[in-house]
Design a protein around this nucleic acid. Structure first.
Lengths: 207, 207, 207, 207
DNA sequence: GATGAATGAGGTTTCATTCAT
DNA sequence: AATGAATGAAACCTCATTCAT
């Protein structure tokens, strides 16, 4: 996408970088930051350890780069999801749907993210988690503004302040997904966005 | 509480053990499991490293003991909270209130717990996180049964299945607390249980 | 034996000391000096670790005391064995017989001894092995003097110098016993002293 | 010998490995397995501790590699010694001679070996000593077959079963060498193989 | 530019020994 | 006199990072 017009050398480099990030993702999400060595990452990516260090200053740097890239993709997909429809209810449905889809497609990513978003990772000394939480925060405000608009147009009742609603919805989605992740045999995958949304819509929607 | 009648030696031992666990809690919750050395814990607890190892077989053992103790206390407080009132709505209010109280009193604990409950810790080889999640799960069912009863007595509408409601409420409480934990200056501490409960009650309560 | 007339207190002490040595023997011969901790010894002997240190200054001291005691007993038995008969051939037979008996009765001791006698133990910094080897040496001279006398009385031919004969006989006994110790199922226990002695007697005896 | 045609990198690696083994031999044979730390070995070999661990998985692995290499060399030399001459008496002379030579050249090795061969080492958990004793055993059978053949051709009398003779000869050589090792000033080095062999030959040889 | 061998600080854990009770 | 809890030096081993090739 962003590397269309780059010289061959540069494109090649980006591809290598991506392979390293991909190997890192596999390993980190499987075993956790501290249980993965740089040698392992290099080996999985099929590069020499020295080459890995050419691309990323140190282990922390690799981890940050990985998380921020995932963050970018996630945000992009979700932002698009809430941009497309006009109707607020549809926006929310779309949002939940894309969350569920993304989750299923990138289960490896999820655990990694949650560790950071919940501020429970302790992996990184200097505030990567803070950056990620800030970006999450910004995104929550986007969701909040959907509620806001919906309330303005009398589509929704003001059962709580919009930001709170965004927080509640967002965390509830997470919780359902984690439930399924932990005990896939006991909880069916929440295919239908409305299964979650209804909890809120019952009181929310002004009928 | 449980050590009232023990011989002096035993009481002393328990006190020491508790001091070690306390030091471990401080450090683990501040820096994360992998960024805390056993020497640090021993130093903070003001014991020699060998003494620490007399009480806990190894680092993992210390961590497990710490988490399970916290888990016990948490469960006890919450179970009591939902046992006292008769009314379902009051039970839920009590539950949320105790969650908020406990949280404020034990912020150090929270980060530690979330890491485990979200399955994002990777700290422990053999499924401590699994045990903690299982216990959380059991507790969710207790909350679910409050909703169930409430639905049975027509106090609540069946806007979703009770377990889902429990999950949604539980995760929403977490989310609000974390928000306040991350950005205490931007979000006032959610003193009032109803601020959270209303989101669900609006649709839930059969008026 | 040596504690017959001692006051009760002293006798008790000797008994305790003996129990400690006995526990130490069991453990050292089973697992080797470095793989046995002082706590283990104390526990096996059913004393507190502090008490063990009252009797023996340190681990090395305990080991030395143990080995020297075993050495004493061994020497005593063997010295008696070669004192009793008049005839040189009988002396040697007696010697071999007692070696075999003692061995069978105290297999635990054997490995311990060999480690020291072969100078292959490295367990003790300051020359315990040297002392043991010296005592072994002295004993070898006693055996040598049997050969010497036998040669003097024309009972034996001087097929080699007497000390060499003693060395050869002694080491050969060891070797057979070890063989049986290592592979008891493949090598029958050398019950008959003559089975070993004959190797030497064939050339030795002046017929 | 075996690394003639290897690429430079590989040859270099083998040389380094050999240096480590050599340092380990010096230290182990001087102080014993348990009294030598990996750091010491690394320092003596003039490598970093990490490099040592690149070559040997752990301390036990290093020890095993060392002993088995020594074992190989020893066996090779001795096997050759008994292969060359046709005559059985010459074979035995050659065998004793090479034992004496090897011993003198590699005194450091001897103590190490004896510890293992005598089953008195306790250094290694999983039966390295057993392997070494097995190999020793196999070698004893080779010596036994020399006696066997000699008996078949009436060169020797059947004064004992051939394996017993092998055991006796072998252990007697050890004993003489150890004597000289312990007290070099009192016992002249047994230069002449016949000094030992005569003890057995007197009765053995059919004249 | 890529490589991967070498480094060594720092982690976990053990255990001989002491000393207050 | 006996106890055993407490100590901490020192062992083994890992892995992030560097740098000569």
């Amino acid at each position: 996408m962003e590397n269309e017009k780059l010289p061959r050398r540069e494109r090649e480099k980006l591809r290598q970088r991506q392979e390293m990030l991909s190997a890192a993702l596999d390993l980190f999400s499987l075993k956790g930051y501290h249980n993965v060595s740089m040698n392992e990452v290099a080996e999985k990516a099929e590069f020499a350890i020295g080459t890995l260090y050419k691309f990323f200053q140190n282990k922390e740097d690799l981890y940050k780069a990985l998380l921020l890239q995932l963050c970018d993709r996630f945000e992009e997909a979700l932002t698009q999801a809430i941009s497309e429809p006009d109707d607020e209810i549809e926006k929310l449905r779309n949002y939940v749907r894309v969350r569920l889809e993304r989750f299923r497609a990138n289960i490896k990513i999820v655990r990694l993210f949650l560790a950071e978003r919940r501020g429970a990772s302790f992996n990184i000394k200097a505030g990567l988690d803070e950056e990620i939480r800030k970006r999450h925060h910004i995104f929550l405000h986007k969701i909040a503004s959907i509620f806001e608009t919906g309330i303005g147009t009398r589509k929704f009742k003001r059962i709580a302040d919009p930001f709170s609603l965004a927080v509640a919805l967002d965390s509830t989605i997470d919780a359902f997904l984690l439930l399924w992740l932990d005990l896939p045999e006991h909880h069916s995958y929440p295919e239908d966005p409305d299964a979650i949304l209804n909890i809120f819509f019952q009181g929310l929607i002004d009928s």
